[in-house]
Amino acid sequence: MSATTATMPRPDFIHVEDYNFWYGQNQVLFDIDMEIPECQVTALIGPSGCGKSTLLRNMNRMNDLIDGVSHKGDIRLNGTSLYDPDVEVISLRKRVGMVFQKYNPFAKSIYENVVFSLRVAGRGKRCELDETVERSLKDAALWDEVKDRLHDSAFGLSGGQQQRLCIARAIANQPEILLMDEPCAALDPLATLKIEELITTLKKQFTIVIVTHNMEQATRCSDRTAFLYMGKLVEYGDTLQLFGNPKQKDTEAYISGRFS
């Protein structure tokens, strides 16, 4: 079910429908309604605490881990509701990979980091693992740097390399969607540039949703951008259009930096 096999990219590959979300009594998302197209990069921007990370983390139900959360509305993935009782959250997460703000490789070798998702899925055939490691690391533009030390600890890598390793790990089991939660927040500009280049190449294979604080980054690497403010979706459209000619006053204020 790889995205690349689909003949026509779906415009509503991820469909968020009137989605509301609460942490306990505290509502953080209000009536979000958006369609995220297949094989494109969609950026979520907005000030801190606006709910963009929460929205992202609900796309693979990562927020289920937190006690006392509740939601109303639905998120559909290629037409299937994430909250369908038949959907097992583990198989959902196999289809939706995630990269975090803070690079977090496991205390294992580079090789074992990449194949972790295959191991937990019970796929341990040597040739398959080798193949996956090479493919994923190549896709994450890390192969040439680490191919001679695959069995060294992942902690020996630089910060940027560790984050690319995390990307390789997230795409190893060939998910359809890649969620990225401020993937460059902890990196220096050069490493950031590399990751951004990577995002541009990866969108051929994956549908990417990225949360970012950096508006240049959103303009550089996303096709569509959504601006969230106070838990509401203020504006959503093509990146060039949203940054060049925002329709809402709030959006304009935020992107021009006149926002506290």
């Binding site: 693979n60 990562m62 881990l65 583990i90 198989s91 997460r93 196999k94 990979g97 995630m98 975090f100 803070k102 977090n104 490789p105 496991f106 972790f116 998702s117 937990v120 899925a121 995390c166 790990r169 997230a170 190893a172 089991n173």
Partner: peptide
Amino acid sequence: VPRGVREAALACGAS
């Protein structure tokens, strides 16, 4: 154990 490491494992499809 950092929260991020657990989340990363779960995000990889681990139970």
